[in-house]
Amino acid sequence: MTAATNVTARLRRPPAGWLVVANKEFGDHVTSIRFVVLLLILAAAIAPPLYFAAGTIRDLAPQASGQPAVFLALFTLSSQDLPILRFDVFVGLLAPLLGIAFGFDAVNVERTEGTLPRLVAQPIHRDDVINGKFAAGLTTIALMLGALTLLVAGFGIFRLGIVPSMSEVVRLLVWYLLTIGYVGFWLAFAMLLSVALRRAAASALIAFGVWFFFMVFWSLVATLAATLLAPATAAPEQVLGNLQFEQTISRLSPATLYQEASLVLLNPVAGSSNVSVPGSLGEYIQAQQQIQSLHSLDQSLLLVWPQVVILIALTVIAFAASYVLFMRQEVRA
């Protein structure tokens, strides 16, 4: 090779492979039927909680002058009869589905369609494929969640006349980032399955199975394990021990971590007593006597920091696993 060609090669823009992949994937995502259907499902899912929250706020409004964080209440209030109908709970329940939907067939479809050898034979690093697909999936999801959150906020401002304070906006933003990170975990997990399993159907089934297990059965598992291993007797210490054990088990689920963090971020009143089981009887009594007070954002953040770190760690682990697996895999089918 001559020096001249060397120079021209270097002068050429370095093609950021992951960006090209991400661009193409993002285009695919937003024009896919999958995107439209998920958007409709999400919109349908948040309509009832929004309706109830709005109703509750209206009912309370006369006494609510001076009530802190009314705007955020839009996201956390529910009907008194149906406590499950809450925006944040719904998002926590459904957001993983977004991650799964945009990740479960990321790599295995390239394999079955025979496009993978062609793709990796282009001058890009192999991890560009995974990075690009992850970036595209996360961007799509962020777009959907952002649209919905803004829709709810807009509804609150126009229909109810609630104007958010600056701190509420920041809290909402942080909550939004947290949610994206949480969905990022599920996206990374689904992509790991798409690398590990050759069939998209298998990876979808397993991903949905895991989601269902954590959403529905994990609390049962936690209760059961706590009852068996740290049974609650009449002694108050043992009741606390039982509860703590149950909490430890339930915190192994990313869903629990997200719910706790989400609650604290959206509700400035929520303190450690809302999240953690008291460690001793003394702490319990202390919590009972605590005067409800508003937490500043940094206090709330401090409170949920462990949860956030674990969520990020889980995402990194899932992502790294799919990365390593993909690098070691043979290209051919």
Binding site: D28, E113, G114, T115, P117, R118, A121, R332
Partner: peptide, 10 residues
């Protein structure tokens, strides 16, 4: 490179 049984995005 033209791979064995090449595929394209349908």
């Amino acid at each position: 490179y033209l791979p064995d049984s090449v595929g394209f995005y349908d």
